[in-house]
């Protein structure tokens, strides 16, 4: 799949932002006043910035408000609705924390649940696609939520939680890659089933429908990433999990260490998320002999 920068930025930043909002909603860290302002500002900037980035890959953004209408059937629509609900629920909680010296815990808890539900909805946009077998597996939602919670814990300065969650994240990521590698073959889709000609024999593309490119090839038959997949997996895992984990375990719990851990983690998330798209093979690529 084409790794569109807007979608990578959207999923990475909004995941991190909603992860931080989850921790803040749970009252971890227990901040008030200016400290709370700084943390909520950062969380909202990441979450809203990510959501806005997603609008940049739209062909016809003037109809974007309609995306709130189909929540009964569409995960993308559910994501839009739940994300706004999450942001609106956390807002009064944040207001109370910043300006009133406190806010009811149940409101924060509700906000935290909605934040995680947003990340889950984002992941389901990809998980629901049978056409991309690598994504269509139960670990995809677990992975997205693990990234959000681990990254959020790092940003929230929750060293112990971050340590545990980074280990879980690393394990989930490795398992998702391992399972993902076998998903295309397991889907049963081949050029023989795609053309219905398997009863006669082996099928090979003789002539593509056109000599030039097209939307399908650009969007869904992207194969540059697969060449460097192994290297990028190591880079992603080391930056997103291993180095931040070492910092959390060994470095003193101060702002510089947290900042460094977050930056390394975010770089790793970008690498892993780029790979999430670039490595994923869409079944339509079969028709083009890819």
């Amino acid at each position: 799949m084409h790794p569109a920068p807007s979608v990578i930025v959207f999923t990475a930043l909004s995941g991190l932002g909603f992860g931080l909002l989850t921790w803040l909603g749970l009252g971890q860290p227990d901040v008030l006043g200016w400290a709370a302002f700084g943390m909520y500002f950062l969380a909202y900037a990441l979450a809203v910035g990510g959501l806005l980035a997603s609008a940049f890959h739209l062909g016809n953004p003037k109809n974007a408000p309609r995306a709130f209408s189909q929540w009964r059937t569409s995960w993308l629509s559910r994501e839009a609705v739940i994300s706004v609900a999450a942001l609106l629920t956390v807002a009064p909680f944040a207001f109370g924390r910043i300006f009133l010296g406190g806010a009811p815990g149940w409101l924060g808890l509700l906000g935290a649940v909605l934040c995680l539900a947003t990340v889950f909805s984002t992941s389901m946009i990809y998980t629901q696609l049978k056409t991309v077998p690598r994504w269509s597996q139960p670990l995809t939602p677990v992975l997205f939520v693990a990234y959000a919670l681990a990254g959020g814990a790092l940003l929230a300065g929750q060293s112990t939680a971050a340590g545990v969650l980074l280990v879980l994240l690393g394990g989930t990521q490795l398992a998702a890659w391992h399972i993902g590698d076998g998903r295309f073959a397991a889907s049963g889709a081949t050029l023989e089933t795609a053309t219905g000609l398997g009863a006669i024999g082996r099928v090979r593309l003789l002539e593509p429908p056109h000599s030039g490119g097209n939307y399908l090839l650009r969007e869904m038959a992207f194969d540059v990433g697969r060449k460097h997949a192994a290297k990028l997996r190591v880079v992603g895992l080391v930056l997103a999990v291993v180095l931040p984990l070492l910092i959390v375990l060994l470095a003193p719990n101060n702002l510089v260490a947290i900042g460094l851990a977050v930056l390394l983690h975010l770089t790793g998330v970008f690498a892993a998320r780029w790979l999430f798209f670039a490595e994923a093979q869409h079944v339509v690529s079969l028709y083009y002999g890819k």
Binding site: L58, N63, T131, A194, N214, Y215, L216, E219
Partner: peptide
Amino acid sequence: SACMGCGLCAWACPYGAREL
């Protein structure tokens, strides 16, 4: 008149039947 051009339907189609 209602399409926002997100392209998700083209991703969901196994046959490459939709083009933005």
